[in-house]
Amino acid sequence: MAAAAAAGAGPEMVRGQVFDVGPRYTNLSYIGEGAYGMVCSAYDNVNKVRVAIKKISPFEHQTYCQRTLREIKILLRFRHENIIGINDIIRAPTIEQMKDVYIVQDLMETDLYKLLKTQHLSNDHICYFLYQILRGLKYIHSANVLHRDLKPSNLLLNTTCDLKICDFGLARVADPDHDHTGFLTEYVATRWYRAPEIMLNSKGYTKSIDIWSVGCILAEMLSNRPIFPGKHYLDQLNHILGILGSPSQEDLNCIINLKARNYLLSLPHKNKVPWNRLFPNADSKALDLLDKMLTFNPHKRIEVEQALAHPYLEQYYDPSDEPIAEAPFKFDMELDDLPKEKLKELIFEETARFQPGYRS
Rank of each mutant, 00 (worst) to 15 (best):
T190M: 03
I256L: 09
V51N: 12
N144I: 15
K164H: 02
E303P: 00
N297A: 04
R261N: 01
K73E: 11
L184D: 11
K330G: 07
I83R: 00
G85R: 11
A171E: 03
H147W: 07
P339Y: 12
Q236E: 06
T295V: 03
D179W: 11
L308N: 00
N47E: 13
L157F: 07
A5W: 07
P93V: 05
A42K: 00
F296E: 00
Y43C: 12
K207L: 10
D177K: 07
I84R: 14
W212H: 06
P268A: 00
I347W: 15
L146R: 10
S153D: 11
Y30V: 05
A5M: 11
Q66C: 12
K138M: 07
G204Q: 08
T68Y: 15
D167M: 05
L163N: 04
R91K: 00
K54W: 03
L278E: 11
E197K: 11
Q97S: 12
C161P: 01
Y317M: 08
F348A: 07
D235R: 08
L156H: 03
V104I: 12
I240Y: 05
G215K: 10
N238S: 10
P229W: 02
R191Y: 01
V188I: 10
G85L: 01
K330Y: 06
Y25W: 00
N257F: 12
R148N: 11
Y205T: 10
R172L: 14
P319D: 04
V46P: 13
D149C: 01
D321K: 00
S360N: 10
L121F: 04
F129D: 08
V214L: 11
I255G: 06
L170I: 11
K99T: 10
R277W: 09
F331P: 04
A143L: 13
L241A: 04
A174G: 08
L107M: 11
D162L: 02
L252N: 11
D88P: 04
L137Q: 14
D88H: 04
K48G: 13
E322W: 04
K151V: 09
S122H: 02
D177H: 10
Y358F: 14
Q306H: 14
N238T: 13
P339G: 11
A286I: 03
N144D: 00
V104H: 06
V273N: 01
A9E: 12
L241N: 03
I84Q: 12
E349A: 07
A352E: 13
P339V: 10
F348E: 12
G85P: 07
A5I: 04
E349M: 06
R301C: 05
W192L: 15
P268C: 04
K231G: 10
I256S: 06
E305G: 00
S29N: 11
N87I: 14
L69R: 13
G242Q: 10
R91C: 08
R148Y: 06
G10R: 13
I126C: 05
I72T: 05
V145M: 09
G85H: 09
H80M: 04
G16M: 13
A282T: 13
Y358M: 10
V51F: 13
D235V: 14
R67F: 09
A7T: 11
F19R: 03
P58G: 15
L130M: 14
F78G: 06
I103T: 00
R359S: 15
F354Q: 07
L137D: 03
P319I: 01
A325T: 12
V101M: 15
H269S: 05
L290T: 02
Q97A: 04
L112T: 07
N271V: 12
P176T: 15
M221S: 05
A174Q: 13
T159I: 11
A195C: 08
A7I: 13
T68Q: 15
K55Y: 12
I56F: 15
I53R: 00
P196F: 08
T63R: 14
D318W: 01
L346C: 08
M199H: 10
R79Q: 09
F183L: 14
L112E: 02
G357F: 04
A174M: 10
D20W: 03
D20C: 10
Y187V: 05
Q306C: 03
L121D: 06
F183G: 06
K164N: 15
K259Y: 05
F183E: 10
G357H: 04
L115Q: 14
E341M: 05
R91S: 15
P93K: 06
F279T: 01
H61C: 04
Q315G: 04
Y358N: 09
C216F: 13
D179R: 11
D288P: 02
E12I: 07
K259D: 01
K344Y: 12
D283M: 02
M221N: 02
K114Y: 11
